[in-house]
Nucleic acid binder design. Structure first.
Length: 804
DNA sequence: AATCCGGTTCTTTTT
DNA sequence: GAACCGGATT
């Protein structure tokens, strides 16, 4: 076919009109949006509008198809159309828009032909919602915007019979997985210190990430004792899961790949269906996910991967940065687009990030820039102790609050959770509202898992694993011994544990316990009956009541149980919310959803509070003011990561991620000594601080830093160090002196008594209602006019408070 | 079945 | 230092 003059005119008008639709994007972004056909790699720096591009690209594909990239006019096109488009471009009106759009569209995709794959539910949901907003709910509903896991589960539920699974397979989480493995290791009479469950689970998980079957793994292990034993465990584990018709998270991906590879007709079906495949956070994909994407996109090869090699921080979970680095080799005709304009941070912050990441050898290379202006310099603070560090942070936040910042404008990020302890107490002391994004997620909490286990068992009594979890929770006189005997009986009789339990009296081996067992079985039967005629949330309450779970928690009555009760109630609202949302709510539907769910989703919805979390969890988020704490050698980079360049680079990427979370102000803090693992450690400032550009860091800090560096040789000898510390630490010392003086003054000023009127920098005017001596300090209760009653420790509060 | 004691361990964790 | 686990004790 040859392009005619008509075609050329048409194509020019078409691109002008389409470009108009996406005029809010920058050139690079637009380029990515319009490159719809063929492989595309988008290297999207932090804060460069990656999600926007992903979404706009989908919108473009839905509305205009390959319109922009098409050089030919539609066969039905007439001179009239050309005229219309020209007029529309001159005077675009809302009435004409639809027709113009239709004339510009070439093979627009149907929603279900688009697969947009992400790692988190949150990201999937965001894409879904923004698309709903843009193209309407009905349209957006059919787009496959989902996580790797939910997309795979969806494929598996349809087709898993082809690989010998029942459609109703259950999903084992990390905890279930560990239980099974522990049992296997015990069963094999292996030393559980040599074969640590966590390590074994990790190795098996990595094997699955690499698509290694137990057989392949055994082959590779050869006669190496450790490896070949793990191969044995892996084999047993796989067999056991298969028998229970269960898959773990890694299976979900691996089995999908196996399904597609082993069944050409199924593969073809999906390859044909997915005309456009988009993958987010591509730098975090593992080998299995890479193969999966390649398979699914194998039909049209309209594959767009978006990611940032500099933000790859999940190697320890099997992610291989190779996938993104070698994309251009995999698809030789791939187009690569770099998004380097940053819309989030100030240039100072970006300079720091650029300088830092430049120290990495293994990267594609990118340089972030912004037209947001330079902003304020990065601030560095080194305190003597971890308490000092925490206090500095609290003071800084209080200062900021009194200047009009909101608590939620602050985030405190750390390398690992333990570092949050002191900061948490400093926040408590200073009445700073804070929220810790904890390592333990809602759905991992014991009480939540217990209740979910009940629901699973009610739905599917054959679920031995979960039955074992709750059969004696709360205690109902069914001891471990009894459960063990019953399990053995189940194995002997080739039946399920529940089957034995429900017919306990037929087995003399169970002796006196059989009454309790049958009682339990009847409980489950009763609940099953209730499920048939009750709304889900009401049913859940019945489960709480009849199992005695709620009563047991209430009976304990301590503070911890109170929290647990709240958590189980929270689960109830989850169920209620699901029941309302789903078209045909079922218990199974809810459990399925929950098993692929984490609770990061509700992170942002909550009240105004300082957020504390690990640097890992901060990925993808942004905050006006960010503290990076514990910037010390041995902590960040961690002592494990300094040996191998590869690990150090990942650590540096983590630092890059952390730095680029800040929009306006970045604070870097560290302490000279810190209590860790029960001993006091002296550490030098992190090398990552050195790698920040000097000119962009607050100047008095640089002095501090130089002094800190001078100390480095000394600190190998702690005695010498402590002797000299006072003489050489000029700036730090001065600062601490000042703080000390302030504290002295404030302790003197503690002649406070109830009834005194005070002015607080952040909370305003108030009256002291009580004073209680506490650990060399005084706990004040102050009733503030504006913010109500607060409890403050006098020493630190006096830095912000004056007596009238 | 609950509690206590001692020993052990201590990155990060999107599903 | 704290949290968690397993074994022993009550």
């Amino acid at each position: 076919m040859e392009q005619t003059r008509f075609d050329i005119q048409y194509a020019a008008l078409r691109s002008a009109i389409i470009e108009r639709e996406f005029e809010s994007l920058n050139d690079r972004q637009r380029e990515a949006v319009f490159h719809t056909e063929g492989p595309l790699l988008v290297l999207a720096g932090a804060g460069s509008g990656k999600t926007t591009v992903l979404i706009q690209r989908i919108i473009n594909i839905l509305r205009f198809g390959r319109g922009y990239s098409c050089e030919f006019a539609p066969e039905t096109a007439t001179e009239d159309d050309l005229f219309f488009l020209r007029e529309y471009l001159r005077h675009p009106t809302e009435q004409d828009r639809m027709r113009a759009e239709l004339l510009c569209a070439v093979q627009p995709a149907r929603p279900w032909q688009i697969l947009a794959i992400t790692f988190t539910n949150k990201a999937a949901k965001e894409i879904q919602q923004r698309l709903e907003h843009a193209v309407g709910e009905e349209f957006a509903r059919d787009i496959w915007a989902s996580t790797f896991h939910s997309a795979c589960v969806r494929i598996l539920r349809r087709n898993c019979e082809a690989i010998g699974y029942d459609r109703s397979f259950t999903i084992y989480d990390a905890d279930d997985q560990k239980r099974v493995l522990t049992a296997i290791i015990k069963n094999k009479k292996l030393d559980d210190r040599v074969f640590d469950v966590r390590a074994v689970a990790g190795i098996i998980g990595r094997a699955k990430d690499n698509l290694q079957t137990p057989r392949k793994f055994a082959l590779e292990a050869g006669d190496d004792y450790y490896q070949s034993t793990i191969a044995e465990i892996y084999k047993d584990y796989a067999r056991q899961l298969k028998e229970s018709n269960a898959m773990d998270f890694d299976d979900i991906i691996m089995k999908t790949v196996q399904l597609l590879q082993g069944n050409p007709e199924i593969l073809e079906h999906y390859q044909h269906q997915f005309r456009y495949v988009l993958a987010d956070e591509y730098q975090d994909t593992n080998h299995a996910q890479y193969v999966l994407i390649s398979l699914l996109a194998g039909g049209y090869e309209n594959i767009c991967v978006v990611g940032d090699d500099d933000q790859s921080i999940y190697k320890f979970r099997g992610a291989t940065i190779t996938n993104i680095l070698e994309f251009e080799q995999q698809y030789t005709h791939a187009k690569t687009i770099r998004l380097e304009q940053n819309y989030r941070s100030t240039q100072n912050i970006l300079n720091a990030a650029n300088e830092l990441i430049r120290n990495n050898a293994c990267r594609k290379g990118k340089e972030l820039w912004t037209d947001n202006g330079n902003g304020t310099k990065i601030r560095f603070h080194r305190s003597e102790t971890q308490e000092g560090e925490a206090e500095y942070i609290a003071e800084t936040i209080l200062d900021g609050f009194s200047e009009g910042n909101r608590w939620g404008d602050y985030a405190i990020l750390y390398r690992n959770h333990v570092l949050s302890n002191n900061i948490e107490s400093a926040c408590k002391r200073n009445s700073i509202p804070y929220r810790i994004v904890s390592g333990l997620r809602f759905f991992d909490r014991a009480e939540v898992k217990d209740m979910l286990a009940y629901l699973w068992v009610i739905l599917n009594p054959a679920d031995d694993l979960r039955l074992k979890r709750i059969i004696n929770v709360p205690a109902r006189k069914i001891g471990n011994k009894t459960v063990e005997t019953a399990s053995i009986l189940a194995e002997q009789h080739q039946t399920t544990l529940f089957d034995i339990v429900s017919h306990a009296s037929e087995y003399p081996e169970l002796g006196r316990a059989s009454a309790a067992l049958e009682k339990f079985a009847n409980l489950i039967f009763d609940l099953q009956k209730m499920l048939e005629y009750m709304p889900l949330d009401e049913f859940y309450e019945q489960v709480m009541a009849h199992t005695g779970y709620l009563a047991a928690l209430e009976a304990k009555g301590d503070y911890e149980s109170q929290g647990r009760i709240e958590n189980t109630m929270e689960l109830k609202s989850n169920i209620a919310e699901y029941a309302e949302r789903a078209q045909t709510p079922t218990l199974g539907g809810f459990l399925e959803e929950v098993s692929l769910f984490t609770d990061i989703d509700r992170m942002d919805a909550d009240a105004d509070a300082v957020v504390m979390m690990t640097m890992h969890s901060a990925k993808g988020l942004e905050f006006p003011n960010v503290f990076l704490v514990g910037m010390e050698e041995g902590i960040f980079p961690g002592f494990r990561a300094v040996e191998k360049d590869e690990d150090l680079e990942e650590e540096r990427r983590l630092c890059y991620v952390a730095v680029t979370r800040a929009k306006k102000q970045l604070y870097l803090t560290c302490a000279e000594r810190r209590m860790m693992y029960g001993r006091t450690q002296y550490s030098k400032p992190s090398r990552f601080l050195e790698e920040h550009p000097k000119d962009f860091v607050d100047s008095n800090i640089m002095e501090t830093k130089r002094e800190a560096l001078e100390k480095q040789d000394l600190q190998l000898n702690p005695k010498f160090y402590s002797k000299r510390a006072h003489d050489i630490s000029g700036n730090i010392h001065k600062h601490n002196k000042a703080t000390a003086a302030k504290n002295q003054a404030s302790i003197k000023a503690i002649d406070l008594k109830p009834g005194d009127q005070v002015d607080h920098k952040a909370f305003g005017h108030g009256m002291i209602t009580s004073c209680r001596p506490m650990g060399g300090d005084i706990l004040l209760e102050v009733s503030f006019d504006r913010v109500g009653t607060k409890r403050l420790m006098a020493k630190s509060a006096m830095n912000f408070m004056t007596k009238q």
